[in-house]
Amino acid sequence: MSLLEVENVVSGYGEEMEILHNVSIRVEKGEIVSLIGPNGAGKSTLMKTIFGLLRAWKGRVLFAGEEITRLQPEQIVRRGLCYVPQVDNVFPSLTVQENLEMGAFIRDDDYRPRIDEVYDMFPDLKGRRGTRVGRLSGGMRQMVALGRALMLDPQMLLLDEPSAGLAPLVVELIFERIRAINQQGVTIVIVEQNARKALENSDRGYVLVDGQNRLEGAGQALLADKQIGELFLGR
């Protein structure tokens, strides 16, 4: 059984604007999987549909074997699936510590040990725990965003363009942290414009074009693929 199964999903915005025409993906436990493709291919739409922010018009989404197609994000998050949006993924007027606490909002147990674990994973944040996140750099904010999502000890993280707008060195650092998170047993799905970076750091990748799956394969195989090279990798 795959941890996440998306079967023949059709989805979009409003009543008319169909973005995903027929998309199916599978993610196995423990994997890092990238969704790549040109602008407007429906990568972010797919992620929002999985997480219940958009309604699937057709098809179904299964997480850990159970159907979550019609669930609200508030319910999905309780099943161990967390989502980090591309923009506005922190609470800017709250401190670093408060952002992490909000990530743990639905936890009833003592989450303080988990906060320490998140600080261990992002040591830069520890010294800034009392700083308002709005005053931090883009890279630090991205760490707060990841840290917030990790507070629930999720089984799976959905990351929408974690490298967007970051300097190359910071991108390197973020992907290194994403791999470390994966090492701890968290399955990860990444949507990326930066296809090369994403595929280099992934076990597998899906190429989405015009709201449909175009290709699927191991990260390295897709990187070597001539067609993809022409499409997105600038070769």
Binding site: V77, P85, D88, N89, P92, L94, M102
Partner: peptide, 17 residues
Amino acid sequence: KALRAMADNPDLARISG
């Protein structure tokens, strides 16, 4: 804190449960 969080970013508040 959750009230302040929601005033800050209602979508992220919802995503956080």
